[in-house]
Amino acid sequence: MLTPDRPFASYHLWSLVAPATGQERWHCQMRRGFIKARQHDPQVKALLAKATAPQRIGILAQKGVYEFHHNRHLLHQADGVEKVAQLLKLSNSTDQVQQRVLRILKKYHDTPLLLDKQIIELTPGDEGFPKPILIDHEDFHFRLYAAMDCVFIESDRTLHILDFKTGKSAFDRRQALVYLLAARYLYPGREAVASFYNLELGKKSDLISINNGELKSLKFELANIAHKHQRDLQKYQEKTSNFSQIFPPNPGTHCRFCPFQSICDFSQQSTQSHPMPSLRTNA
């Protein structure tokens, strides 16, 4: 039986609990239930283990950037893209994944965003869960998880946290705020900004910063999310048959893009009652 750990928060959990602005109609709490409460069920575990094409593209694109900077000479070689593709074992992927990742690698090879940057952290994208940050306050405590793609130092000594995207991913400011909160603990005393960069489209976001007042509000927001989720897990542990009441579904045409539609009792793959949202890809 499921045993909830101490409360935790992350951008991923935040996005599962509360939708991004404009995505409210398609947000489904049952998806959180499958991912966070029933992740050890054999059927759910099997579905979670299957990376979709967009997920594969995001992971390989991030790893490609990592390989370019881990083997910096490849940025200056004519066959650098082919060499990185070999390191990624890209030939083992589907044609769709290969073609899109190759375009991303070529774009980055032509215009390497991080060239000459003082990089202090650059992850390959498949490193798993980061070490939790303990957030302690007189009114609450929780563990914060924040896996950052890249951290580098600007010429004015500002810490810059960069998150890579692929596909048609929306830039969700909440993710940047979580990173900026984490930076206060990981790099104390350093001024920090955060931004997003779409490797596929070559699109940059504006720089995002946070002041002390916003930081305080953010901690309360994440604490509420952490404790709400923990309460939901405890309710589910007490009575697993109440799954759909604890994690209520929101069926519609968007079910066709849900990884759990094959095992969900509420899936409506052919419902035509609502227009479809644009399909987003979050690496």
Rank of each mutant, 00 (worst) to 15 (best):
G33S: 11
A49M: 11
T52I: 09
L13P: 03
L47H: 03
D139L: 13
E121G: 04
M30S: 08
Q23T: 01
R32F: 08
L222R: 03
T94E: 08
Y66I: 10
D163Y: 00
Q77M: 10
S270W: 02
H40Y: 03
H109Q: 06
N211I: 06
A51V: 06
V44Q: 05
L74G: 14
Q268L: 14
V84Y: 03
P277I: 13
H229F: 13
L75S: 07
S278R: 02
H227G: 03
V84T: 08
Q230A: 15
Y236H: 14
E67H: 09
V65T: 07
C258Q: 01
L207C: 02
T123G: 12
P248R: 11
R280I: 07
P251W: 04
E121W: 00
L16C: 13
P248F: 09
N211W: 00
A192Q: 02
L74T: 13
K106Q: 15
S155H: 07
H137T: 04
R6W: 03
I59G: 01
Q234N: 10
L2M: 11
A85S: 11
P132L: 12
L144A: 08
A51E: 15
S270E: 15
I210A: 04
L105N: 09
W26H: 12
Q62C: 13
K165L: 05
L114W: 04
Q29E: 12
K106V: 08
A183G: 11
Q43V: 01
D95N: 07
F152T: 05
